[in-house]
Structure formats: structure tokens, C-alpha cells
Amino acid sequence: MKNTLPRLAVHKFSSCDGCQLAFLNAGEALLTLSRRAEIIHFSEAGWENPLAKVDIAFVEGSISTPKDLERIKAVRESANTLVTIGACATAGGLQALRNGVKQFADWVGDVYASPEYIQSLPESRPISAHVKVDLELWGCPVTGKQVLDALGDLLNGITPVNSSEPVCSECKRSGHVCVLVSKKEPCMGPVTRTGCGALCPAFGRACYGCFGPAEQANTASLAKQFEHMGLSAKDISRRFLFITSATQPFSDTGHGYLEQEDV
């Protein structure tokens, strides 16, 4: 019986490990999962078997080093279905802030005592830039529900729902106060993909855009509204160039305002 269970792997690339907590913090659901699937590789939880063939591989982290680049190809080879979890794997992550920065080599020298040990690719890029990805789960971090719902759907043979509606939809269903309209906070909710349950607006804070762009992200219009609200070009660029800075249309809008600031 055991041998017939679907086989899972959880891989980590350049990342903070936070998205893997979606599994580690799942509590009782892990007992249910153990009846539905067998975890073959998950370094953070103790299973070390990186090249084993699996049905579903979850991948956290971006491709940021030459070694990452080699490994992701092997992971893709090993898995029937590859699911990226989190902003790093799906969008390049915070570390993609270095993309296109000319002084990058100097920074490495400034930060590390022995920079010769640092081997980085010029850019941090999402998994999909290098191999085929079957499902991308956004978030910084992803939520446990998001990952387990997707996994449950895959195990049940259903195409996972992967909503790309804006945070506003969830915010209004939850009855939170609109921080943009009532508090004039530079909330990214109207252009950001849902998934967090409108967490920041629930606490009266503006959305940071952790889950990346929503399906129809009219960033130009929202940025113009931020201008009307009195934000500087620098502040506007920082709203868009943050957790998913390498993703369109956040990237173009953010860099557009960054250039205005440079002028």
C-alpha cells in the first residue's frame, strides 16, 4: 500500500526557508497528508533524497547562483509536476532587487569579508525563467492553506484554483476599512494578487504587494493616485520595486519612477 502513494519532494533554492514552513506548521494536516502521500525529499524536515523521482516537487527559492542553475534542471527531471512556492521561486524574490544594479560587484566587496567565495549569477530569476513550471503559488510567504489546498487538489486529481483577483476583493468580503480611501495610505491592494486574506488592511496597514501583481494590475493608474496623495517618485518606486520587483508590470512602473528620481 505504502508504495502506491504519490511521492513528494520539497526543494530549497535561494530563499529564507519561510515558505517551507507552510508544511512544517501544518499540524494535524500533516497526519492526513501522511495517509495520502509519501515525502521523499525535504531537507528542512530531515528527508534527504534530492534526486529521487517524485510525482510532485515543491520548489522554494530563486535561481541566484550557478549551482542553483544546475540543480533546478535535475529537480525538473526528477518530478512529474513542479510547483513553485513563494515570491522567490515565482518572481525572483527580494534578492532580485540586485538585478540591473551596476555597482553590484562593489556591494559584494563591501558586504563580505572574502568576496571571492561569493558566486552569484548577475540576476536572481524565478524558476520559470529556467525550467517549465506547472503551477506557481505566489506569496511572501505562501500560506499553509494555499499550499495544502493546491496539494490536496493535485492529489485529488483536480486543477488547483489559483486566484489572481486583487486583494481588494478579499478586503471587501472581510469588511475591512479601505486604507486607501479612508486613511490615504499607499495601499498596493488594488493591483496585488490575493492569497494573504487581506492581512495588512485587516490591521489598518497598506498592502505591501507580497503576492505580486493581480491579473489586471493597472499599476500606472495606481502610481498616479499615489502621486496625487503626495508620494515622491522615490517612494512610489519603492512601493513597486519591493518583494516582486522583477515582475511586470511592477518592474516597469517602479523603474519608471526610479528614473524620475535620478533625473
Partner: peptide
């Protein structure tokens, strides 16, 4: 050009 397609109008 202005509409954010955020759906707030329909929710309220």
C-alpha cells in the same frame, strides 16, 4: 486607463 479593475465599486 484609470480603472484599477479592483472591483471595489461592485463590492460596495
Amino acid at each position: 486607463e484609470r480603472c484599477l479593475a479592483c472591483g471595489n465599486c461592485t463590492a460596495v
